[in-house]
Design a protein around this nucleic acid. Structure first.
Lengths: 204, 204
DNA sequence: AACTAATTGACACTTACTATCATAAGTCTC
DNA sequence: GAGACTTATGATAGTAAGTGTCAATTAGTT
């Protein structure tokens, strides 16, 4: 008997994999925090997580991918699609961001902040994150298109998505002439303010 | 005697360096074109340019930097600052782009197209280019600030710069669901259209 | 021609990442 | 529970990017 759990339970294998993955990630982030990203080698991470270097690469294609796991924009995209249709795309996206952020646990939020900090600091990661941004343009464009029944490849739709991502970039990375304020309000608060400004038509 | 030419002429040394640099760059781009970016090694480039691998790294810190040499946004920034003050920031930037493009020789333009193509194609380069975009936000913000006498770190100023870069990104990289049109008009024409759309307030 | 400073090439090294293969562990069937 | 089957793992060897050092060459100077 016991035919129900056929698909249900994760199974020992899956659980072990999830634990291994989490362990690698945890130790990697800790080491990055303690010694810096560059100074930490894959071998060190593997040893700390008690796996072989080979195994590290089976779980994460590159060292960068340990840090860059943007679950947030997927959540946002989901929440975006289900916003009331009478909102402008920017307003809808703004609301969706709030929903997505609220859905995160404190732990998730803390990790998100840490990886965000790393991403802004390490040039290597910053560059990769930008590639993610570019992908995000497409994601937003698709969500916006499905909301308004337009083509996701429509030039205007993509352009709005680009502007959204652009202001987020600007709000996220004010890293030049930064003397010290670099935390003028919360990161997410800055993003929200940027979207608000865009929504208002970018008045100077 | 002969005190005048002290600072004037480039000198043999400088000229040779410039030639070496150009040779490396030229052969690298040719090899990338012929065999692809990944398939081309530093050793091959060095051999083709008739220098040692060490020398390659003295001229270019990384393999990526051979491709990524955005002189364009510097030109644009210059032209931007000298636009009539009554233009909106976006309109001024649009005009500046045109001026900068017109100032390029056909050779420069051809090379620009080639490197742009590479940059869009190779993930590694795409990621790095995004980092350049982020830097461009700051450059634009500074130029816009000096035009209007505001602070370059002003939130609103940076936000406008972000939106400009964002729509450029969107126009430059429509690489998903791309079936084939990927050249809907010229790259630069697309950028101009994107800026025009932003200038008009991003109507849908 | 002799001296100084910059450019170069050779060498050795670290590290990220790939490919392969044998072993060990989890899963399924009877 | 013993077997066959599948999947995860670790060891090993290899490639290629990038760094540091040092001796030899080459350009500029007096």
């Amino acid at each position: 008997m016991s035919e129900a759990p056929a698909i249900r339970r994760p199974g020992l294998r899956e659980r072990k994999k999830a634990r291994t993955r989490a362990a690698i990630r945890e130790h990697a982030l800790r080491l990055f925090r303690e010694q810096g990203y560059d100074a930490t080698t894959i071998d060190q991470i593997a040893e700390a997580a008690d796996v072989s270097p080979s195994t590290f690469f089976r779980y994460f294609p590159t060292k960068e991918d340990v840090v860059l796991q943007d679950e947030l924009d997927l959540l946002t995209a989901g929440a975006f699609a289900s916003q009331p249709a009478d909102l402008s795309p920017v307003a809808a996206f703004r609301a969706a961001t709030r929903v997505a952020l609220d859905s995160l646990s404190d732990d998730d939020l803390a990790r998100l902040r840490e990886t965000a900090e790393l991403t802004l600091t390490v040039p290597e990661l910053r560059a990769r994150a930008m590639d993610e941004f570019a992908r995000t343009i497409t994601v937003i464009a698709e969500a916006a298109a499905s909301r308004s029944g337009r083509d996701p490849n429509d030039f205007a739709v993509r352009n709005v998505a680009g502007a959204i991502v652009g202001v987020i970039m600007a709000a996220t990375m004010p890293w030049t002439n930064w003397t010290e304020d670099r935390q003028t309000g919360d990161l997410f608060a800055r993003i929200d303010a940027a979207l608000e400004h865009l929504e208002a038509g970018l008045p100077l």
